[in-house]
Design a protein around this nucleic acid. Structure first.
Lengths: 245, 245
DNA sequence: CGACGTATTGACTCGGCTCAAAACCTGTGG
DNA sequence: CCACAGGTTTTGAGCCGAGTCAATACGTCG
């Protein structure tokens, strides 16, 4: 599954990842020393729930689905993460085993970090702990919003919200964007079924003037979309806290 | 609203709170020095969303509702917290203003901690940062489960899950417990309406043999309840990770 | 006892789910 | 270049769980 060929050096990517930019050079150097970079392909299973968490991962590129399966065979998508996000970071502290399954859903490049070394680094290096605190605090806020969204927004609104979060800060008027992974998965990511997604997107299309062609979506009336979506939310676009999805 | 009369010394409570027991005496002393303890009454508003987060709080006793309001006037309950839980801790790091409203819903005693001092302590004291990391990591896992629950469990199952989490580790056979706050709020905490709660509890009562008298609930068939509830969840009772609600 | 807040019940609506069929894509091999 | 196979997405019909609104019951406190 993983391959190691033809990857640019780790340092090169680190600049562009928010989590690392707050760290000073010496810590980054230590991180580079203990980490490696690997490429993964769509469909690869990164790890399973309850496996001992020997490594945690930082996404350089691509998309990874984090999910759980119930006894009934149902699946809950906890999150779908991309560039700049850590995977399995809770295992550095509160638990030793992964709390979910992780699957690559778009070809990905990940930085692989051994848990024990990282734990040690956190114990020895105060600055690194503080960076992690920042990250976890941000995650917490993000999760709280997620709970709110799944509670108060209906299907079309959740989709609209998802689209808005794909927009780059400061874009205007007609915005065309490409859905980052297939509709099936976006549906689960938003806590609905694929059929519901399809119908809800169609509804949204009419109500706020979207153009949909395959996985390209154009927002023709940004203000209209915002007022439709953000009425059922406690924050309003552009919701900075949530910029990282 | 808050009053200061007749409260036992802070130190006395700290022993019993998990977050503090991992800290060594010197840190606890520092915390005691900068903190005060206050009593609040049902209905008090602790703080509002977007207020500058001058203090964060540790619950010694009582229940506090954390919630958000949308433009539409709808309300989403993010969490309802009690003994041992921190309130507003994300404001130490990722943001300066409270991300939700907080209201006292059962008479409460809180330890009040000034944000700036606490931030300073985290910056100076590595052990304290590590304790916070632990806490935030635990929170994250808890929130991820919450997302799963609201996704996969139906109303009766969510109620059953709530009841199970009220059980103390190791209890058996007929367990009687008292609902910690009114049914209206439990309903919102579980992401449903009061009427739905009422009907769903009635349904659960028949299906797994509960006895309900006002706010006292007796679980007559623990295994039955567990198998009914935990089928729609990726964890199974007793789900240790979630012990703190 | 009456009054108010909380909880339950009833009748109805509606959003999202299920299952099944059709349409649409994309890539492959002839 | 077309035909076909596989997956993905859309559409349709019907169902069911949860929400809504309004009325009733219950409890508790004055």
């Amino acid at each position: 599954m993983p391959n190691k060929k033809n990857l640019p050096p780790i340092d090169e990517h680190l600049q562009s990842i928010p989590f690392f930019t707050t760290l000073d050079a010496s810590v980054v150097q230590q991180l580079v020393k203990i980490s490696s970079q690997k490429a993964y392909h769509k469909g690869d299973l990164l790890f399973c729930r309850d496996d001992v968490a020997s490594h945690i991962y930082l996404v350089v590129d691509g998309w990874v689905k984090l999910f759980r399966e119930t006894l009934d065979g149902d699946e809950a998508v906890i999150d779908v993460v991309n560039k700049g996000q850590l995977i399995g970071e809770t295992c550095l502290f509160s638990e030793t085993n992964y709390p979910f399954d992780a699957e690559i859903i778009e070809d990905a490049t990940l930085i692989v970090l051994p848990t024990d070394k990282l734990r040690q680094l956190a114990n020895e290096n105060h600055a690194f702990s503080l960076a992690l605190l920042n990250l976890l605090a941000q995650n917490q806020t993000r999760h709280e919003h997620e709970i709110e969204h799944r509670n108060l927004q209906n299907a079309p609104q959740r989709i609209g919200c998802f689209l808005l979060r794909l927009c780059k800060q400061g874009q205007t008027a007609p915005i065309t964007l490409r859905l980052p992974y297939d509709k099936q998965l976006i549906a689960s990511r938003l806590g609905m079924k694929a059929e519901t997604f399809s119908r809800a997107l169609a509804k949204l299309r009419k109500e706020v003037n979207l153009t949909v062609e395959g996985s390209n979506v154009t927002i023709n009336d940004l203000d209209g979309l915002v007022s439709h979506v953000c009425a059922a939310c406690s924050s309003c676009f552009p919701c900075q806290d949530l910029s990282k999805q």
